[in-house]
Computed example of a mutant assay.
Amino acid sequence: MTDSPEEFLPHLDRSIKGKSAIVTGAASGMGRATAALLASEGARVVVADLGEDRVEAVVSVLKDKYGDDSALGVVCDVSKPEDLRHLVSQAVEWAGQLDIVINNAGTSRPNTTVQDDDEFESVWEQVLAINLTAHARLVRLALPHLLKSSSPRIVNIASTEAIVAQRGLLSYAASKAGVVGLTKSLAVELGYHGVTVNAICPGPINTAMTSKYDPEKKAAYAKARVPLRRYGDAEEVAQMTLNLCLPASSFVTGAIIPVDGGMTIRHT
């Protein structure tokens, strides 16, 4: 301990102002909420998703609210390596740097062991390509640029399906468990370079993906399974993502954080 009377005062930076971030799957749901939150905190955000109209709709709102330099839209199918290469090159050309990567894009399709062979293979390949393989590819492409950042951050969006599971989502559960394993392995590998890699496991969240469920059944499920007795909001996931992106979160890596209202810790 030094003699300085101010040694114990906070000194770590909790601002991402001026940072550059890629958010995949950013045209809706948790990705859109994350892109908006990062932009509100002063980051320059690359909004990546399918569909030019969907992407530009989000970018337009962010620019109107936070300025013309707050957002860039890039149409990207994360299952295609060439699209990911284009995404990273556009992000770096626009912002001149890359500090944050949020692997949020995902898909879910019914998938069981008793499906027709062709259908099983098609679903399995698509879900794994989007939910898992794309994460690894984007990290590899972004890494040379992240290594130039003073606080490089990677956040992978997994799911509570990586912790607990339900029938009928074989490939989805496998892919999200894979994201957890990938996150841990990347955290060990990239820790030597000061890059933090963490994963968030959202539970029942109000998004377009869950909007198709009957509201009464959703309410009953939440009361029966979730200690907080409700579905979460997309911004509640985004806020945790932001926390992991802060320069001050410099000693958090390899963490797997459920944002699920306590669902996965409830025994009965």
Rank of each mutant, 00 (worst) to 15 (best):
T113P: 00
Q115Y: 12
Q115A: 07
D116S: 09
D116K: 08
D117L: 12
D118N: 03
E119H: 04
E119L: 12
E119Y: 02
E121T: 03
E121S: 10
S122H: 06
V123L: 01
V123M: 01
W124I: 06
W124K: 03
E125F: 05
Q126S: 13
V127M: 08
V127Q: 04
V127E: 03
L128V: 15
L128I: 15
L128E: 01
A129I: 09
N131I: 12
N131M: 07
L132I: 10
T133Y: 14
A134P: 05
H135Y: 14
H135W: 09
A136G: 14
A136W: 13
L138G: 07
L138P: 04
V139H: 06
R140S: 15
A142I: 11
A142D: 07
P144Y: 11
H145W: 07
L146I: 07
L146R: 05
L147R: 15
L147P: 01
L147K: 15
L147V: 08
K148C: 07
K148M: 05
K148V: 01
S149R: 01
S150Y: 09
S150V: 14
S150G: 07
S150W: 11
S150L: 12
S151D: 13
P152C: 05
R153G: 01
R153K: 15
R153A: 08
V155D: 08
V155A: 01
V155F: 05
N156F: 09
N156D: 11
N156V: 06
I157D: 02
I157H: 00
A158G: 06
A158E: 06
A158V: 05
A158S: 15
S159P: 01
S159K: 01
S159L: 05
E161H: 13
E161V: 10
E161G: 01
